[in-house]
Design a protein around this nucleic acid. Structure first.
Lengths: 116, 116
DNA sequence: TCTATATATGAACATATATTCATATGATTA
DNA sequence: TAATCATATGAATATATGTTCATATATAGA
């Protein structure tokens, strides 16, 4: 925003978290946890698959070639963060994307990568 | 999508990565790296601060109460992923947000957290 | 009921990550 | 040209994460 050749560095008195309106540490922590959950190739793949179809654990396992246990652990994390939802259908646990935010997150990120 | 009481689980023959149009492993890896970089409270705070003002390292250090070294390491990662940009102004390194995708990512995530 | 299928989860281990510490470089000021 | 300020970075260490292994539970079918 400043195009002058010399930056003016604010001092300690001028700078404080509050002036810049940072989110509360509670919100920040939750955001971290969400991004944490998106940093894994397995979980990212799960979300891509679920954004096309609701799928059960076995189907995710077959599609991704990852062990049932690993898929299940991944789904637990995504569930806890409300990024996916489950409904029990007989012996199957059918998973789906929780809401549009989740799709937006992976779409925006994919755009950023593709537009390099 | 299916509201019948019983899920029909696809078998191995039916399921394949290609049918579901998963992104290439190259793209997926880059996406992981971006989300990885957003999973840290320090880096998330840096991005919130930079989305308001371009700031030098010293200012980020003062605003966040995190060591110069830690800030600098964090900025390197964000730089490498093209989430922030630097311009040298005298002895200062002034950082700014790279593009709108970055702001979209943190905004969408914040919305998701706040709408619980 | 016995067996197979589908899923979940605790524990453990290998790997990855974040911060600190020490130090190096380059720019500014005295 | 010393001394100081601003920044960068390699190494080390403490902590976090992902997967595997073993095992438990619940449903379905024979």
């Amino acid at each position: 925003m400043d195009s002058s050749p010399e930056h003016i560095c604010a001092d300690e008195v001028t700078i404080s978290k509050k002036e810049y309106g940072l989110p509360s540490s509670d919100v920040l922590l939750k955001m971290c946890n969400i991004f944490k959950s998106l940093q894994s190739e397995t979980r990212l793949n799960i979300l891509f698959l679920l954004s096309n179809n609701d799928l059960c654990v076995r189907e995710l396992e077959l599609a991704l070639g990852v062990s049932q246990s690993a898929i299940s652990h991944s789904l637990r994390l995504l569930r806890q963060l409300d990024l996916v939802r489950v409904k029990k259908e007989g012996r199957f646990a059918v998973y789906s994307i929780a809401d549009k935010h989740v799709e937006q997150l992976i779409n925006v990120c994919q755009e950023h990568v593709l537009e390099e």
